[in-house]
C-alpha cells in the first residue's frame, strides 16, 4: 500500500520532469498484461564507473516466455572491459566493433519495455546501469514497476525455514527451481533463465526446495 503510494507519487513527479514528451508512453497504464525480464552484461560491477556491453530482454505473458520477441543489443563503449568480467560474459573489445551506441540502443530498449513491469535478478544493479543512460536522455529514472526474483524466492523459502540462511546465488536459485542451465552467461540467456525462475515461482506449485 505504502510503497504503491510512493510509486504513484514519484511517477507523477517524474512525468512532469520528463524532458522528451515522446516517452510519455512509459507512464501510461500497461494493458498488455506482459512483463519484461532483462539482464545486462557490463564492463564491471560499479554503475558509476562501468558501462553496459549488452542488453538482453524477453517478455513474459501468462505462462509463456515470448522468445519470439527477444531483445538483444550489443553496445559500443569506451570503457575498458575488466578481464574478470570478460571471463563471465565472454565479450571482448573486438566483439563490439559493429555494435551500436547507447544513443541508439536506449530508445529502442525503452520502446521494447514500454510501461510493462520489469523483472530481474539483482535488478537494482541493472536498473542503475540503464538509468545511467536514461537520466541524461529523459531527465528521469525508469518509472516502471520492478520485480526482484530473488526476493520472491526468499519470501517463499523463508516460510519453510524461518531462521534459515538462504543462499541467493543465481545458480543456487536456478538449481532449486529446477530450471535448466541454458549454457553461456549472456544477457539473453540470463534473461530467459530468470524468466523461467519467475514463472516457476509465480505459476508453479511453490515446491521450491
Amino acid at each position: 500500500m505504502f510503497s504503491s503510494f510512493f510509486r504513484e507519487f514519484f511517477k507523477k513527479r517524474d512525468l512532469k520532469r520528463l524532458k522528451d514528451d515522446k516517452y510519455k508512453f512509459l507512464f501510461e497504464e500497461d494493458t498488455s498484461g506482459e512483463y519484461v525480464v532483462f539482464d545486462t552484461e557490463t564492463t564491471g560491477l560499479n554503475p558509476k564507473k562501468d558501462d553496459i556491453l549488452s542488453i538482453g530482454a524477453v517478455k513474459i505473458k501468462d505462462n509463456k516466455i515470448l522468445t519470439s520477441q527477444t531483445f538483444e543489443m550489443f553496445i559500443q563503449n569506451y570503457c575498458d572491459i575488466s578481464s574478470e568480467s570478460k571471463k563471465i560474459h565472454g565479450i571482448r573489445e573486438v566483439d563490439l566493433i559493429n555494435a551500436k551506441t547507447t544513443f541508439e540502443v536506449i530508445p529502442e530498449f525503452l520502446e521494447f519495455i514500454g510501461s510493462r513491469p520489469l523483472v530481474g535478478y539483482y535488478l537494482e544493479f541493472d536498473i542503475a546501469m540503464i538509468n545511467k543512460y536514461v537520466k541524461p536522455l529523459l531527465g528521469i529514472k525508469l518509472p516502471n514497476e520492478q520485480i526482484e526474483v530473488s526476493e520472491i524466492y526468499y519470501n517463499q523459502k523463508i516460510e519453510f525455514i524461518p531462521q534459515g540462511n538462504i543462499d541467493l546465488k543465481f545458480d543456487t536459485i536456478l538449481q532449486n527451481c529446477g530450471v535448466p542451465n541454458m549454457g553461456a552467461h549472456n544477457a539473453v540467456n540470463d534473461a530467459i533463465m530468470t524468466a523461467m525462475i519467475y514463472l516457476k515461482l509465480t505459476k508453479g506449485n511453490n515446491d521450491v526446495r
Binding site: N63, K64, I65, L66, S68, P180, M196, K203, G204
Partner: peptide, 30 residues
C-alpha cells in the same frame, strides 16, 4: 527462431486431448 516461445506448465496440466485441440508443437527442454 523468431517464432518459438518458451512455455511453462505445472504437473498434471492437460496439454492435448480429444476435446482440447492441439494449439502448438512442443519441444521439451525440461
Amino acid at each position: 527462431m523468431g517464432k518459438i516461445d518458451i512455455a511453462y506448465y505445472t504437473k498434471d496440466t492437460l496439454l492435448i486431448s480429444k476435446n482440447l485441440p492441439s494449439i502448438a508443437f512442443y519441444i521439451i527442454i525440461k
